[in-house]
Design a protein around this nucleic acid. Structure first.
Length: 231
DNA sequence: TACCAGGAGAAAA
DNA sequence: TTTTCTCATGGT
């Protein structure tokens, strides 16, 4: 199955169907509550997910997986709990900023009642919440039709020749959303499949010979297969 | 031992 | 305004 060139709805849906056919539904985000999704979004910044899971488990064990104790904690104590996620001093400050914002705003319910654009702008004003983290929260915690552009998305779609690797975050997000139309469940599944595929391909290194979707492989070794699929 | 992983903010140019 | 630097653990 060849993937057509250019970022358009039919082409994006073609890639989506390839991924869905290979991996099935991913049922994301891997969390038990909206708050856990938001905490995970901060902790996963530039960090592998298994390390985030350890940090979340430590928060849970301490009964700190709530905004109140995190907001009120000594930064050093919080940092020690989330140490496995890396960048623990930085992320402790970021988590506290976010939890204080959440409490000041009246909690998750109050945020959930706000229009997407307004909520996104507010999230972006919180220390430690950048575009990708805000969009993770909007899509996975608040089920808003916001497409998350992460390193995996860039790598895979650049490899396919559908985007260039240096496109800005906001422009790229707008392009994906315009091509697919507003559809939160689709964005949810699509991003989850992209991450799944990137991890799947990574496990196949070196060579990716066993990758089930060579034409979408994010690894450089599969460029020949990619070219034949896209061409 | 060296490199990379689901960023973001601050400082420097 | 844009680019570079810093943060840090754990797995491969």
């Amino acid at each position: 199955m060849a993937v057509e060139k250019g970022l358009s709805g039919p082409r994006l849906r073609q890639v989506y169907q390839l991924l869905l056919g290979a991996y099935g539904h991913q049922k994301w985000w891997p969390a038990e509550s909206r708050f856990e999704v938001m905490v995970g979004a901060v902790l996963t910044q530039n960090t592998a997910w298994p390390n985030v899971e350890r940090a979340i488990a430590r928060l849970q064990a301490a009964d700190w997986l709530r905004p109140e104790p995190i907001a009120a904690a000594a930064s050093a104590a919080l940092a020690e709990l989330i140490r496995p996620a890396g960048y623990f001093k930085v992320k402790a400050r970021r988590l506290q900023s976010f939890c204080r914002f959440l409490l000041e705003q009246g909690g998750e319910g109050a945020l959930a009642a706000r229009p997407t654009a307004e909520l996104r702008a507010q999230l972006l004003r919180v220390h430690g919440v950048g575009p990708e983290t805000a969009d993770d929260m909007l899509l996975y915690a608040f089920e808003r039709p916001v497409f998350v552009i992460d390193a995996y998305t860039r790598r895979i779609f650049a490899r396919l020749g559908l985007i260039t690797s240096d496109e800005g975050y906001e422009g790229l997000r707008a392009d994906f959303e315009a091509a697919l139309g507003p559809d939160a469940p689709l964005y949810n599944e699509y991003h989850a499949l992209i991450v799944r595929h990137a991890k799947e391909a990574c496990r196949k290194r070196p060579g990716c010979g066993g990758c089930r979707l060579q034409g979408l492989c994010p690894q450089g070794q599969a460029e020949n297969a990619l070219a034949s699929d896209v061409g």
